[in-house]
Simulated scan of single mutants.
Amino acid sequence: MPTKKRTVRPAPAAKKCGTCKGSGEIFIPVRVGGRKQRTTDDQQTGLCLACLGSGEATD
Rank of each mutant, 00 (worst) to 15 (best):
A11I: 12
S23D: 13
R38N: 08
C20I: 02
G53A: 08
C48I: 12
A11G: 13
K5H: 03
G18V: 02
F27H: 11
A50Y: 01
R31E: 09
L49C: 15
P29E: 07
V8Q: 05
T39G: 09
M1S: 04
L47F: 06
E56Q: 09
C51D: 02
F27L: 12
S23M: 12
T58N: 15
L49R: 12
D42Y: 10
G18A: 09
G53Q: 04
D59F: 06
G34E: 11
R31N: 05
C17T: 02
A13W: 01
T19Y: 01
E56Y: 04
T3V: 12
L47I: 15
G33E: 06
A50T: 06
K21A: 11
K16F: 00
G46H: 07
T40S: 00
G22E: 04
Q43M: 10
P12R: 14
I28T: 07
Q43L: 10
R35P: 03
A50E: 08
G24N: 08
K36M: 14
C20W: 00
P10H: 03
R31I: 04
K16T: 00
G18M: 04
T58G: 14
D42M: 08
G24I: 03
C48W: 02
T40K: 04
V32Y: 07
V32N: 07
K21Y: 06
K16I: 00
T45H: 07
A14G: 15
A14H: 11
R6W: 10
S23F: 06
R6K: 15
K5C: 01
T39A: 12
G22D: 02
F27P: 00
V32S: 13
V8T: 11
T19D: 08
I28P: 00
P29N: 09
G22L: 01
D59N: 11
P12N: 14
E25D: 14
G18S: 10
L52P: 01
K36R: 15
A14E: 15
P10R: 13
V8D: 02
G46C: 08
D41M: 09
K4W: 04
K5E: 01
G53N: 11
A50Q: 10
C48R: 06
Q44A: 07
A57L: 11
Q37K: 13
T58V: 13
G46I: 04
D41V: 12
P10S: 09
R35E: 12
I28V: 10
C51E: 03
A13Q: 04
S23H: 14
K21R: 11
A14N: 11
D59I: 06
P29S: 05
T39R: 15
F27S: 14
G22Y: 00
L52A: 13
E25S: 13
V8W: 05
D41F: 03
K21E: 08
K4R: 08
P12D: 09
E56F: 05
G24V: 04
R38F: 08
I28K: 03
C17D: 00
A11D: 13
E56C: 06
A57M: 13
P2F: 03
R9N: 03
K21P: 02
C51T: 05
G18L: 02
M1W: 02
E25K: 12
C48K: 04
L52W: 15
V30E: 02
T39K: 14
R31T: 12
K21M: 11
I28A: 08
F27N: 13
P29A: 10
T19P: 01
K15M: 04
P29D: 08
K15E: 10
R6Y: 11
V8H: 05
